[in-house]
């Protein structure tokens, strides 16, 4: 057979390709298929959270803050469990970041709360002395773009089968359903209902008034997103 292969270089090349491709398939694919599944307990982003994610990207938070906890004791002590690839299943794009000027935010929802974010976004050095992070006062007046968030939800639900309006398994064995509106109006209503819960925990009267009027300042969406990072 080897003699024959030596005389037929084309089929030799095909054979080499098949052998190497087979090794690649059995080594890489099974692990890849398993690791790229969403981890149990990972849920899709709600409309408001997604709008907050857009605010996060728009203000380039990921330039200074990573969202990837490496498996080192020093990191897991500070930020929580190391990241698993399946936890990014609904991140489009993922926001791993490559440089930590500020701390990692992968699980910031576990150890910071709405009112802290409110204080911090207005004036970071008021709560963290010596912080070099600038304030983001315009988040309190700019309005979040819920329509775009809804458009993204529709797209990922259709093309990537992201399970909106479907039960998603949680760690404790229960299920959770993340709702997505059937129309723009419905999506806006859902986002506003979520915003009201956040605004109730905030102190800024202008923000509270805006939410009461039916508007959603960017800070509310951003905090919703921050709180969802767990």
């Amino acid at each position: 057979m080897f003699h024959w292969l030596e005389k037929h270089p084309f089929f030799f090349a095909v054979g080499v390709f098949v052998v190497i491709a087979f090794a690649g398939l059995i080594e890489i694919l099974p692990n890849f298929a398993q690791a790229s599944r969403p981890v149990i307990g990972t849920t899709p982003y709600s409309t408001l959270e997604l709008a907050g994610r857009h605010v996060y990207i728009k203000n380039s938070c990921n330039a200074c803050h990573s969202q990837l906890i490496r498996p080192f004791k020093s990191e897991t002590d500070r930020y929580g469990h190391y990241s698993l690839s399946g936890e990014y299943a609904y991140d489009r794009p993922f926001l791993w970041g490559s440089k930590r000027t500020g701390p990692d935010l992968m699980r910031v929802g576990n150890y910071r709360t709405t009112d802290w974010h409110e204080n911090h976004m207005k004036n970071p050095s008021a709560v963290v002395p010596g912080s070099i992070m600038p304030g983001y006062p315009w988040l309190f007046t700019n309005k979040a773009d819920v329509d775009t968030a809804y458009a993204e939800q529709l797209t990922v639900a259709q093309f990537f089968s992201v399970p909106y309006n479907k039960p998603v398994p949680m760690k404790d064995g229960s299920t959770k359903t993340v709702k997505m509106g059937n129309s723009v109006a419905e999506a806006n209503a859902l986002a506003l209902a979520e915003a009201k819960v956040i605004a109730a925990d905030m102190k800024d009267q202008d923000v509270k008034d805006a939410v009461a009027r039916g508007e959603i300042p960017e800070i509310v969406a951003l905090i919703a997103y921050m709180n969802s990072l767990k």
Partner: peptide, 10 residues
């Protein structure tokens, strides 16, 4: 009244 404090279970 101050706000919310997260748990520090870790």
């Amino acid at each position: 009244v101050m706000g919310q404090m997260p748990s520090f279970d870790r």
